[in-house]
Design a protein around this nucleic acid. Sequence first.
DNA 1: CTGTTTCTGTGTTGATCGTTACATAAATCA
DNA 2: TGATTTATGTAACGATCAACACAGAAACAG
Lengths: 204, 204
Amino acid sequence: MSERGRPRTFDRTAALRRAMELFWAKGYEGTSIADLTAAMGINSPSLYAAFGSKEALFLEATEYYTHAEGTEIWAALDEASTACLAIENFLRRTAKAYSQTDRPQGCLIALGALHQDSSSGAICADLRRRRAENLTALCKRLERAVAEGELPANFDCRTAATFFATVQHGMSIQARDGASCTALMATVAGAMAAWKTMAGTDSA
Amino acid sequence: MSERGRPRTFDRTAALRRAMELFWAKGYEGTSIADLTAAMGINSPSLYAAFGSKEALFLEATEYYTHAEGTEIWAALDEASTACLAIENFLRRTAKAYSQTDRPQGCLIALGALHQDSSSGAICADLRRRRAENLTALCKRLERAVAEGELPANFDCRTAATFFATVQHGMSIQARDGASCTALMATVAGAMAAWKTMAGTDSA
DNA sequence: CTGTTTCTGTGTTGATCGTTACATAAATCA
DNA sequence: TGATTTATGTAACGATCAACACAGAAACAG
């Protein structure tokens, strides 16, 4: 039913991936339509016909990013049997992924649009929402550990989740500064050193 | 000797501070010359005569920021008698400063220009250099603690400094997401929980 | 006073921004 | 076949970008 008219001559998903990589590397404001059309191999009318606008393309690109690049990291939370291992693997996968040299360093969700502009208000809000979702995912994993008895009942899940999420955000900037996987692992070691204290009986 | 010619009718330092606040709030790319001239209360020829270019103005603004906004935070490293207190006060002052509502949230050095653009290559390099200097300052304080016997001789200063610097960077993003001082203190608590483990005898 | 120097306001430069008319090409439907 | 529908390429839209030419204004030295 949707085969009417002249068919599209480019791979929409492949073009979306190229756009994602460009937004990832240069940010929302730093990426122009000319940059996008060049990387996607299409002309601007095709871009607008397929994706609507630069803003809509960015939103779709971040959605694609979440499913294509983020899953391996966040799946660590559910795979490990204990919350301690879950957090550690989560951060170790973050360190590995953020320092890969065959793709932009750091996280698109964290770095994509940090400065609230008049034109990118919806962009900022969307990324902020995704960051909040990530915080919630960390919090839920910790609450599960409390329910399972791994962590004491008075464990402050929200505080700990905020801490680990913030560490991950910092790792994006660290990675942008050219930090190697080994250097990022130093941060992971520091974060897990905090775990030992937080999960212990001497925590407030 | 420099009183020749028509005198400047605006306060150069006050204009520089306005420019700093604008770059701080909107980032380098997100701030236009029109934004700057409006906030500084001058016309573009006056801006170029006094500061050279947008890039030179940003570099001078970050230098001003480092001396005007950053000193109170980094002075904590030298004021405290122990490294433990020094790091904690450093992070607590960071939490307070980053969440102030009468100025932009987070840090200009951390958030000013994260995406390496063709036009902002020098900007990125300058901010990166300042972040590296901050890391060195943290490292030196820890090395001093080792020399003074507060920390064991095998303490990994570089790893710990990297960890605390990364936490501070993450706090910038957290602050941009609207986190209160209390919320940022949760991250500080997590970071100091790491201290207890790192400085203990059970560290590797 | 005249001449020199430096700043200020108006206006504009060419380039680039995101977006879109318009005509043409390639597919399906009747 | 002809009519309809959708995509493509060329070209351009008004707006904004960073930066500057130019002339007039305000200080100095002589």
